[in-house]
Design a protein around this nucleic acid. Structure first.
Lengths: 110, 110
DNA sequence: TTTATATATTGCAATATTACGATATACTTC
DNA sequence: GAAGTATATCGTAATATTGCAATATATAAA
């Protein structure tokens, strides 16, 4: 098959999975980390920063954008990309809740 | 191709990507959320909780285990699965750092 | 020891992902 | 308008993922 049965899961589960999947590739982690490192949105040189071809990076950027992890806006000749704070904070919140829940538990585990 | 060029990225980036990729599927999100919901490790009934076949779930569990997100231990006839707190906390930390860094920035974005 | 129960593995078909060369698009500058 | 620069899209090959039926394995119970 190869076809994820999204219809069996909640919207929340599906949209979360899309975001995490987008970060589930080292090149895309690297892109996000680069965008964090430079202190503003970056126009242009992402391609020069990574050891992948221009079409491949363009594809990864598209996926990050679709998942809502980055935003892009046309800036003359180039395109400006920056991190979408809101999505990062959502993910932070999600794992924070999990951590908190886990801390509150007995250690009755295996 | 279809072959991720892991060698071009740092170990940290690669291992993080593996963990996030493991959560990048709604079924695996659902499994983790179920393990959170029940207040202890669960022996057995994960298969009954999800609308997927037993082999498929077994495969997803394997992937979660490989990524270090869950732990499993044999408990007589069944197998006990529970969340690996440490990994969750790692992810929490990662996104917390990102959130913090983003908060400290000027809003000089696009 | 046979039978039942729980989970893993194998094998396979359908689909998705990754990567890149070639090419298209779009804006800038000359 | 022509040439240059930056990014996107198309097409395609290689590999990975998803899902399940069939089967294997392993323990428990009878």
């Amino acid at each position: 098959m190869g076809l994820t049965k999204t219809e069996h899961f909640s919207t929340a589960q599906n949209t979360l999975a899309v975001k995490l999947k987008a970060l589930g590739h080292p090149a895309r982690v690297a892109i996000i980390e680069y965008l964090m490192e430079v202190n503003t949105c970056i126009c242009g040189d992402i391609v020069n920063e990574l050891p992948l071809s221009q079409p491949t990076i363009s594809q990864h950027l598209k996926e990050l954008k679709n998942a809502g992890l980055i935003k892009g806006s046309i800036e003359g000749n180039a395109i400006c990309y920056c991190i979408n704070d809101e999505t990062i904070r959502e993910l932070h919140q999600y794992f924070q809740n999990m951590s908190a829940t886990l801390s509150g538990k007995q250690d009755t585990c295996c």
